[in-house]
Design a protein around this nucleic acid. Structure first.
Lengths: 190, 190
DNA sequence: CCTACCGATCGGTAGG
DNA sequence: CCTACCGATCGGTAGG
């Protein structure tokens, strides 16, 4: 791990706990064992830290949906693979994922608009998969916007409660989510 | 509306946009058309604004679950009424609800611990309802912790996308969520 | 990576 | 509700 990566990793941990605004360069420096001014030999600004994590993760989600659409053809398969990949990306670095979820709105205007647009694109791809499932006759005739947003919020909330030290692997979480999203709570169809 | 209520309402709108840390007394004063120092004739501190909204809403959720448990007896009924009340509480003041969701972690230690404990209690009550549904034979044998957290995240994400000016009423949103949570996406049982 | 420092801004108080 | 102000702290720079 380079010094720069070490700085990013510690910054993410602190941002997760204190929020972007609550991460001060002096606090970060203290955790690194150096002076605040020295941080600027490795990164150019506090904003850069946030931009890096937000766009790194956004690009992972983009790749995942591209791959899923390339490989699988029917909607239930596409959806279950995307859920799996989504959860694996989130769980690969929970500090990064939590910051991605909570702090993106503190991006400066230009990167923020770019970020929101990438996020909307991902949401659209999920809507398309759901619509495909309806057209195929696999899914109920739900509103795709509502369904996509509800699905995404269920997936993303994993960062709030998942503990790598617990009993569930990311794959098992993905399977439970898939089951829940596909079949719901009720034993009989209503 | 008293001056104090007006201050709270404007503070919530600003907190929603800028976050708790990004709400400055000078910005709030500007929106009120007074000087920053004058705010302190109406409230005692910035923290008070956050505590008020967090605990006001927490107490509404607590009342809702008490009422639902008092009136209804089987789990599907309890759950659907709680979803309805939950969404109505959220949509009654979207600024307050958004701040409640995102900014509670900036509460000072003592109120924060209190808040988290109230939140856990609400979560436990939802787990009990789900467990009841399993025992009754109405619900699938899911892990109640996982199901409660996933359900709650789906409900709470309504604050991110609900627009009072749109076509859906809060009641209709609640009905869609109920349907989604109970029957899932899939047409046939898997 | 450090010392020394800058201008800006913060929440809040004193006194009227 | 205002003027005047406080000590603390912020992100970041200059120069070594």
């Amino acid at each position: 791990m380079t010094r720069k990566e070490e700085i990013r990793s510690i910054a993410l941990r602190l941002m997760k706990t204190h929020g972007f605004g609550g991460l001060t360069m002096r606090l970060l420096a203290k955790e690194l064992g150096i002076e605040a001014a020295s941080i600027y030999n490795h990164i150019s600004s506090k904003d850069e830290l946030l931009e890096t994590v937000c766009f790194d993760l956004a690009s992972k989600f983009e790749s995942a949906v591209l791959e899923v659409n390339d490989i699988y053809f029917n909607a239930p398969e596409k959806l279950s693979m995307l859920v799996k990949q989504h959860i694996e990306i989130l769980c690969a670095d929970l500090n990064a994922s939590t910051v991605f979820m909570h702090e993106w709105r503190y991006l400066k205007e230009e990167p923020r608009l770019d970020f929101v647009s990438k996020r909307n694109h991902y949401e659209q791809e999920i809507r398309k998969i759901i619509q495909l499932g309806i057209d195929e006759g696999h899914f109920n005739e739900v509103e795709t916007k509502f369904a996509a947003l509800t699905l995404l919020s269920a997936l993303n909330s994993v960062v709030e409660w998942y503990k790598p030290t617990g009993t569930l692997t990311p794959l098992q979480v993905a399977q439970q989510l898939n089951q829940f999203v596909l079949t719901g709570l009720s034993k009989q169809k209503i």
